[in-house]
Amino acid sequence: MEKLKILVVDDESRMRKLVRDFLIRKDYEVLEAGDGEEAVDLFLEEKDIALIILDVMMPKMDGWQVCREIRQYSKVPIIMLTAKSDERDELLGFELGVDEYISKPFSPKILVARVEAILRRTGHKEQEELLEAGGIVIDKAAHQATLDGNPVELSYKEFELLTYFLENQGIALSREKILNHVWNYDYFGDARTIDTHVKKLRSKMGEKGEFIKTIWGMGYKFEVDR
């Protein structure tokens, strides 16, 4: 299934990078624009953008004008970002057909949660919810793992770790990469916390724990023995 495209529009490159990094972790394709004119041109050129994250205060053309321009052609979901916390701005946004309105500063995780909620509501979010390998089945929607049809009790991080392994079968993953994807920016500390979680995960998986191979001096690789 093709990745859903999200257009991030903000004149601050640091802000675009922060939002982009969180969205890419959730397997979205991210397009960027640094001003309103570029955003409109990119939207009209691409045509299959699923959602727009749009800053209000920008050079050349502000977010409100971008919204007006795009609404002439499309009802694509729009999340508006603003440094102002002004009720009039919020009302104007909804009048222009803005789906969500988020004031800066904001939590990137909350923003991503809003993105996913809107895409589910608009029928776009139908990404693969079941993963299977070697008798292990991950149901992402139910947050449940089974081994040969038998449920296995995993902690939240163990489930996320196993899911990440199944999504990257056969790929060597460094501890740092695992830490960035499973723990995001929540954890600041020793990457050896991965080893502790892998040890617990292996013990709960029984003989299937052998699918998680140790790559000495680097990290791990999930591989089903044929």
Rank of each mutant, 00 (worst) to 15 (best):
L44A: 13
Y164A: 04
M57R: 13
F94I: 15
Y187G: 06
Y156M: 10
E167P: 02
F165A: 13
D186W: 13
D48M: 04
E2P: 11
V19G: 11
L119V: 14
E160M: 03
G209Q: 03
S74N: 09
E128R: 15
E210K: 09
R202H: 00
S103N: 15
K213V: 10
E132G: 10
D139K: 06
D139R: 10
D21S: 12
E207L: 08
I215Y: 01
K5L: 12
L130P: 05
Y187S: 04
M61R: 12
E90H: 09
L7A: 01
R226F: 08
I79G: 04
K109R: 10
F165T: 12
R14F: 03
Y28S: 03
E223G: 08
T214E: 04
I212N: 07
V98E: 07
D35K: 00
L166H: 00
R16M: 06
E207D: 06
D148H: 05
I212C: 13
L7T: 05
G135I: 00
H181F: 09
D89I: 10
M218E: 12
L161R: 05
L18F: 04
K213E: 05
G219H: 10
N180C: 07
F188M: 12
I49H: 08
F188D: 13
M205Q: 01
P77L: 08
E167G: 11
A142T: 05
C67L: 14
Q144E: 01
A33H: 00
F159C: 03
I136K: 11
